[in-house]
Simulated assay, not measured.
Amino acid sequence: MSSVKYEDGWPQPHRIMDAEPYWAALQEDRLTYQRCDTCTQAVWPPHGFCPHCSGRSLTWHTSKGKGKVYSHSTVVRGPTATWQKISPYTVGFVEMDEGYYLFTQFLAKPDDVVIGKRVEVRYEKRGTQTQPLFALVDQ
C-alpha cells in the first residue's frame, strides 16, 4: 500500500506508468486521453490495452476540454486543512465530448452545478502537479 504524498498541502496523484503521458501533458495545460486504433472507442482511465475490444494499439489524443456535468456531489467538510479552506466544493464526473468520463472538481458554487450543464477545463497547479478542474460555461 502506498502512502499519500503532499506538496503545499495538496495530495499528489498516484502516478501509474500507463498514465504518465496524461500527467506530462497536464503540466503543459493540455488534457489528453487514449483512443483505440482498432475499435475507435475513447479509453479512460489510461490502459495498456483497450477495455472495449482488447486491442493493443492505443493512441493519445488532446481533448478539446469540453463536456457536460454527468454527476456531482458537494463536499461540505474537507478531509484536510487545505481542502477545508475551499469548502464547500463540488466534485463529480464530466461526460467529455470525446466520449469518456472524467472525475474532477467543479469551479462553481455548489448550487450552480446541475446535471447536463456545459463545462470546460481550467488548469490549476496544486502542489507540483497541474490538475484539470472544470468551470461552467454559458450555453
Results as ranks from 00 to 15, higher is better:
67 G>W: 05
39 C>N: 01
49 F>W: 15
36 C>R: 06
62 T>L: 08
78 G>H: 00
97 D>E: 15
64 K>D: 13
69 V>K: 05
46 P>G: 02
92 G>I: 00
41 Q>G: 09
95 E>G: 05
66 K>A: 14
64 K>N: 14
82 T>M: 03
78 G>L: 00
48 G>D: 14
93 F>A: 13
92 G>F: 01
76 V>K: 12
61 H>F: 12
37 D>Q: 12
87 S>K: 00
74 T>C: 05
53 C>R: 09
59 T>W: 06
43 V>H: 09
98 E>W: 03
41 Q>I: 11
70 Y>T: 10
85 K>C: 05
39 C>T: 09
75 V>N: 03
38 T>K: 14
57 S>E: 14
43 V>I: 05
94 V>A: 00
60 W>Y: 14
43 V>N: 15
61 H>P: 07
88 P>V: 04
55 G>F: 00
52 H>D: 04
93 F>P: 02
98 E>S: 08
44 W>M: 10
85 K>V: 01
90 T>S: 06
44 W>S: 08
60 W>L: 04
68 K>Q: 07
52 H>R: 11
95 E>S: 13
89 Y>W: 02
54 S>V: 12
54 S>A: 15
67 G>Y: 01
75 V>I: 15
78 G>I: 00
67 G>P: 10
93 F>N: 07
93 F>I: 10
71 S>G: 02
49 F>H: 12
83 W>Y: 13
70 Y>I: 02
73 S>H: 11
86 I>N: 00
55 G>Q: 09
83 W>C: 01
80 T>S: 07
49 F>G: 04
47 H>F: 09
84 Q>G: 09
91 V>L: 13
45 P>G: 10
69 V>W: 01
46 P>N: 06
57 S>R: 11
71 S>R: 08
56 R>A: 11
49 F>E: 15
56 R>H: 11
45 P>E: 12
79 P>T: 08
81 A>D: 10
80 T>K: 01
72 H>V: 05
39 C>P: 13
84 Q>L: 02
